[in-house]
Design a protein around this nucleic acid. Sequence first.
DNA 1: GCGCGCTCTTGACAGTTGTCAAGACTTTGC
DNA 2: GCAAAGTCTTGACAACTGTCAAGAGCGCGC
Lengths: 222, 222
Amino acid sequence: MASTSTATKAPSGASNRAPAKTPRRAPADKYDERRNQLAESALQTLGELGYARTSLREIANNSEFSHGVVHYYFSDKTELIVYCVRYYKAQCVRRYDGVVADSTSPEELLDSFAAKLVETLQDEAPMHRLWYDLRTQSMFDETLREAVLMIDQTLQDMIWRVISRYAELSGAEVAMTPSATYGVLDGLFQQALLGYLTGDQQQTLDRLTDQVHALMPLTLKS
Amino acid sequence: MASTSTATKAPSGASNRAPAKTPRRAPADKYDERRNQLAESALQTLGELGYARTSLREIANNSEFSHGVVHYYFSDKTELIVYCVRYYKAQCVRRYDGVVADSTSPEELLDSFAAKLVETLQDEAPMHRLWYDLRTQSMFDETLREAVLMIDQTLQDMIWRVISRYAELSGAEVAMTPSATYGVLDGLFQQALLGYLTGDQQQTLDRLTDQVHALMPLTLKS
DNA sequence: GCGCGCTCTTGACAGTTGTCAAGACTTTGC
DNA sequence: GCAAAGTCTTGACAACTGTCAAGAGCGCGC
């Protein structure tokens, strides 16, 4: 089915979600805190093993809790995964805001954007492969689509802010649509991620830097 | 020796490495034929369910055999999957050869290339999402990497043949590397696949056509 | 202090999975 | 026509999965 918790267990209500029938009120801070704590453990495990190989027991095993606690905080596995994905998204959507805000020339923006791409590729490769894993799974599993498409749109907006600012600093207009810009950059990044995880890391990073430097000017009208 | 066991059609080379389980050297034609037969059933199931949800029983269930036969022709699940991937690759690598050979102007090549992309997106969406699934899994599972990287390189070569011919017909040189060209086109295609499977199909196909038409001229030196 | 509700653990369930052994059926060689 | 080898089915195994019920431990208000 579509989303959110069905009426099976429904532990104590939190703030934002609509709890159908809460037995009693709860601290609600502690509750959300635990959910985030479990989400972080889950994200780490998911990034290591991938969506398919990650079991709830493995997630609980990498946390300080036992496997039963997952069903106290999440109605089922899908709800946990989707919660993790949204939680992850909130952490990385503003990644390039500094690049956009601090750059004063198109060259500077281009350099720092490419550097930021390389940095996150190095530091968060497991999270990125998890994202691509989930996005691909959403092509098979309908229950993931809503969350995935929303996050994908958010990432596209993020890229568009960079490109718009790049055009603005260049005194030009963007020649491509937001969708196309995101598509080509995402393709290069995904290719680099695969190369980084399976081949020569430094060479992959250098190549990505070159590719981004070569591609970005092409997105402008001349 | 006896009967008419000489090469009938033999899609696969006669020289194959010894099967892992050593079923005693057989007609070897029938043997490879069954492997391909199973591979085709497996590909269909894999394209429908994805790599993670596809079990050997499900594969056998969609074929005319029982689940035990899989282990007669393949030593384990991974060998079956990898065999399927290679089998699939052989079917689609020459997809754009006609486009390259028959086009006599850059505009014609561009049109027919974009049309071919749209066509395969429509007709073989399950196979394409399976490919992206396996490529993503190879970021987690080492046993898939060798086959995936080889196929990825083959696809890059395929795209490069198109782009090279496009440049040749245009009387120009390509401004991007094979890697970058493949990366950006693959990004657009993957984005279109996701859109095709989750949203408005016709709009996605039209958008892909426009994006390819807009992108290809940018790959040339001007 | 006591009871009650929140939190968490333990243990079990039904189902599924990859794997393989034992044997039945089929084809082939002589 | 028969034995042997190839082919395929059946049934079982151990491990693993998501799920959930029963209950223990804990903390809080009264």
